[in-house]
Amino acid sequence: MRFKKQKRHRKTVRFFSVCFEFRQPFKVLCDGTFVHHLLHNDLIPADKALSDCLSAPVKLFTTSCVLAELKTLGASQSASFQAARKLAIARCDHEKRVSADACIAEVIGENNSEHFFVATQDADLRKKLQKVPKVPLIFGLRNALFLEPPSKFQREFAQSSEEKRLHMTDKEYKALEKRTTSILANADAEDSSDEEGLGYHSPGLLPHNTRNYAGKERDIKDRVRFKRKKAKGPNPLSVKKKKSHENTSLASGKEAKGDDGNAQSKRKRKRSRRALLRMARSSSIILVICED
């Protein structure tokens, strides 16, 4: 049950934060009845109890009219008066004291520009503030604090304001129309001057082809150009080499010639240097013998 309550509170806080720009730390405006409830049910310190309820840091406020009302109640509400005096004072600008509910309603106004969370035990005040679009309400029940979910009026107001943000206002539409007419007029004037040869196009209003041509002259690429992938052949290492018929015929011819001319193709015996010297000596000896 406690987990569901916290989940519901987080959803409500997110609604007011997104739709009406409530920001942390949240400001909580307390009246006398709520301060009395906190003391009576021992929900102290009050800032910790409210921060646990909203799952965010808070800052507590009250008004001078609320303090004056608690003071007039006498000793029965002296503890509540002393506790309320410790809270920050929200400006209400009342010269004469008014009732607490009227003071809080006036501080909130029509749009709750200060983004207050209102904490009160007054059911009539809560019912009245439900008709104000940007007011989240907090109340206590025994020893627990609850954040009221947004009312039907508040949801409808948030939806209508979101739809208005999606469309242009009359002022924005007129400004856009004026700008487009001026741009078209400038473009027509430059086209006419270009036909007469008296002017040139500004870079912002150049036609598409002219802008590309100027970019080529200045070696500027207007568009990103991607390299096209070319068709690649197979991996040469994975392909078998083709057997050529000419090479086989030449090889067979050489083999045939080798068989016919064995005598011619015999390799000459290589002679060493010592053998040549011996041969030369033997030949000189033979010559000497012949001369004798």
Rank of each mutant, 00 (worst) to 15 (best):
N235A: 09
L237K: 11
D101P: 01
E246N: 12
D260A: 10
V118I: 00
E246A: 12
K230P: 03
T120E: 04
G109D: 05
D170G: 15
L67R: 06
K254G: 11
H201L: 08
R274P: 04
M1W: 02
C65R: 00
R281F: 08
K221F: 03
Y213Q: 15
F116N: 03
F16G: 02
R126P: 01
A251K: 08
K221C: 13
V35D: 00
A84H: 03
V288R: 14
C290K: 11
K48R: 11
G74S: 09
F157I: 05
K270L: 13
L166D: 14
K230C: 08
Q121S: 03
D122M: 01
L38C: 06
L277W: 01
V18G: 13
Q154W: 04
L60I: 00
G74H: 07
T120P: 02
T248A: 12
T210V: 13
D93H: 04
R269I: 12
R228W: 01
K257H: 09
R23M: 11
E190V: 07
F81E: 09
S252M: 08
H115Y: 01
I183A: 13
K216Y: 09
K241N: 15
K5T: 06
E114D: 14
L176S: 15
K232G: 10
K96I: 07
L87Y: 06
H40T: 08
R211Y: 01
D52L: 03
K7T: 15
